[in-house]
């Protein structure tokens, strides 16, 4: 009996210790989450640049591997939506790296086109992670859609690393395809990213997003949401006010997910430039 009692006490002690450690980790990650949130563009800055917009951001964990970014400089506004390798803490660390590098590029280099920003961002990530294309090294990095909106000329530049840009214009979804390579080293040698120059029309809606939304399992048959239904949904809601669109996207997501586990961070950004 004495032995059983001893064992019980030991188990209790271990349980308490694990609980204490878990709480400490959660507190520390929650604090990290505050830091990560403070690095994202504040609502006021976003509103000033694009009064009509929404950002649907549902991290899978407390901290997220997805991030969005926006900086205005002169008559140009740079904005991006990115998805870093992994989610949770590793993804968050990479996202902080991405945000810092983007800020540095835009601060130090004037008037770089969108694709050259991505070229440079890839160089910075490769250097920071000591990537040399060696087949044994980890392929850490990020996928990103990056846009530069020139208000004076009403021209949008887009360059994408694995992530596309959708523009809904008069009941049509126009897809600007990304280059099929990440920001970071990959199996093939680095090529320059492509720059798209897009003349925007009145009432164009821009959508930038990571793959979390379309990859979410759910629905009656437990399948992925996929791109076609996503495009259809965007078409359906495109004429609604942007905030309303964000709300519907959230509700549709929750409904689709149902009791399934959220598999990745969710990030969708919608902007109406007029």
């Amino acid at each position: 009996m004495a032995k059983e009692e001893h064992l019980r006490k030991e188990l209790e002690r271990q349980r308490d210790e694990i609980t204490r450690q878990r709480n400490e980790i959660i507190e520390s990650i929650q604090y990290a989450s505050l830091i990560q949130t403070s690095l994202l563009p504040p609502g006021k800055v976003f509103d000033k640049a694009f009064p009509r917009h929404f950002v649907l951001f549902i991290p899978k964990n407390i901290v997220s591997g997805d991030f969005y970014w926006l900086v205005s400089k002169g008559h140009r506004t740079y904005f991006a939506v990115a998805d870093c390798t992994g989610h949770g803490v590793p993804g968050a660390l990479m996202s902080i790296l991405g945000i810092s590098f983007l800020n540095e590029i835009v601060t130090m280099r004037d008037n770089l086109p969108a694709n050259r920003i991505l070229n440079l961002l890839r160089e910075m990530v490769m250097k920071a992670l000591h990537q040399t294309g060696d087949s044994t090294e980890a392929l850490d990095g990020m996928d990103i859609s990056l846009c530069i909106y020139d208000k004076g000329k009403n021209i949008l530049q887009f360059s994408g690393a694995n992530n596309p840009l959708y523009i809904v214009r008069q009941d049509v979804v126009i897809e600007y395809k990304p280059d099929r390579m990440p920001i970071g080293v990959s199996g093939i040698e680095e090529q320059p990213f492509t720059n798209h120059y897009i003349e925007l029309k009145k009432n164009d809606n821009l959508y930038l997003f990571t793959d979390g939304y379309v990859d979410q399992f759910g629905g009656p048959e437990g399948k992925k949401f996929k791109f076609d239904p996503f495009r259809t949904l965007l078409l359906k809601i495109a004429s609604l006010p942007m905030k309303e669109q964000g709300k519907i996207l959230r509700e549709t997501f929750e409904e689709w997910k149902g009791d399934y586990v959220q598999i990745d961070d969710i990030l969708v950004m919608g902007i109406n430039v007029f």
């Binding site: 440079l120 890839r122 490769m126 990537q131 080293v185 680095e190 090529q191």
Partner: peptide, 18 residues
């Protein structure tokens, strides 16, 4: 040279050069 071309045609190395 663009950084990419410099690496590809001059250095012949795949490393990050910001």
């Amino acid at each position: 040279f663009s950084t990419l071309d410099f690496k590809k045609f001059v250095l012949h190395r795949r490393i990050g050069i910001p």
